[in-house]
Design a protein around this nucleic acid. Structure first.
Lengths: 175, 175
DNA sequence: TCAGACATGTAATAAGTTACATGATTTG
DNA sequence: CAAATCATGTAACTTATTACATGTCTGA
């Protein structure tokens, strides 16, 4: 049920906004840690409204509806942040393949790991570059978004190093 | 569609087995990188059979059905390993909360990061201990499972270090 | 005026979770 | 003979994805 809290949290941080506004945030920043598509966002806005956690605060042109978090919504958000233990997802498509690399020839398995290392290296560089370009404000989303981005950079670097190590393990094993 | 390949891959590696056998593998090892429950596994066995990628090779006591991978199944598995780019999931409940830590008092935000660091440290130690206890064979699942486990260890360590760093960032910021 | 951005929604399908339901075999 | 383990399946529900459908406003 985290989509609910992603929407609720964004509305709290942005101090209100429309479904369209939220989608933009999902696309450029929040989506890197919790992705959601348009149907989901609009659907969740409806459910959150029905549950009294958010409310329509204004209506604008083109049917635009601006939502704001209610007191109940703020309470739920804090409860989720403080009391609910984040459960880590255990699904990783890259690693799943690793389990089955024995189905390939050893050189193909090594090539797989090599490709992962390259890919991760590329991503790590992209992130590092992006990190340098952005001049961060000191609003909350900037402060905490910066922490999340640094996580991403370290994550990619770790994956690259692991893939290099793993490729080497297989090479060593050959002999 | 990775569940399908998780089941297919396991059957290939184990050289056949029942739904029950597969479930045990998901519980003790594979589930750490791709979790699945009993309904999913039995359901997928049915679909894979219908699609001709696996077949019932024997029937045993208590209605036990033993499945084996067909030639078509082996082909599909290799195709998936070689040609399909693993797409990384972008959902992390821990990090999602980080985006919204501005909704809490600074000391609560720090406490959240501190708790994450402790939790990750604990997991990292558990994994390291487990890694030491297991005496790995040199069958494929062992060789590649070992690589996956080392990934897990590094991942936990990276998360701990990041959380410690992030907590410190917030502390520094306070002044 | 027309292209692009703004803006919301629904329908159909697929994937994942939880709970229920049943029964056979082995082992102490 | 009772408990644990083996073994499979279905139903109901929730969550996520993809595609479709529609219309408004703004700026060049």
């Amino acid at each position: 049920m985290s989509l609910r809290h992603a929407v609720l949290g964004l509305l709290a941080e942005l101090d209100g906004g429309s479904g369209y506004d939220l989608m933009k945030m999902f696309e450029v920043s929040l989506g890197n840690v919790w992705s959601a598509n348009q149907s989901q966002v609009y659907g969740e806005l409806g459910k959150l409204t029905a549950d009294g956690l958010i409310e329509v605060t204004a209506e604008g042109p083109r049917g635009r509806k601006e939502y704001g978090v209610t007191e109940a919504g703020r309470g739920e958000l804090r409860r989720w942040l403080l009391e609910e233990e984040p459960k880590q997802a255990r699904r990783d498509a890259t690693l799943l393949r690793v389990f089955f690399l024995g189905q390939l020839d050893p050189d193909q398995a090594q090539a797989y790991l090599h490709a992962r290392a390259e890919d991760m290296g590329r991503r790590a560089e992209e992130l590092a570059a992006l990190q340098g370009r952005i001049d961060w404000g000191d609003d909350n989303l900037s402060v905490y978004g910066r922490l999340a981005m640094e996580y991403g950079r370290r994550f990619m670097a770790m994956r690259r190093e692991w893939a290099e190590w793993a490729e080497n393990e297989l090479k060593t094993r050959e002999s």
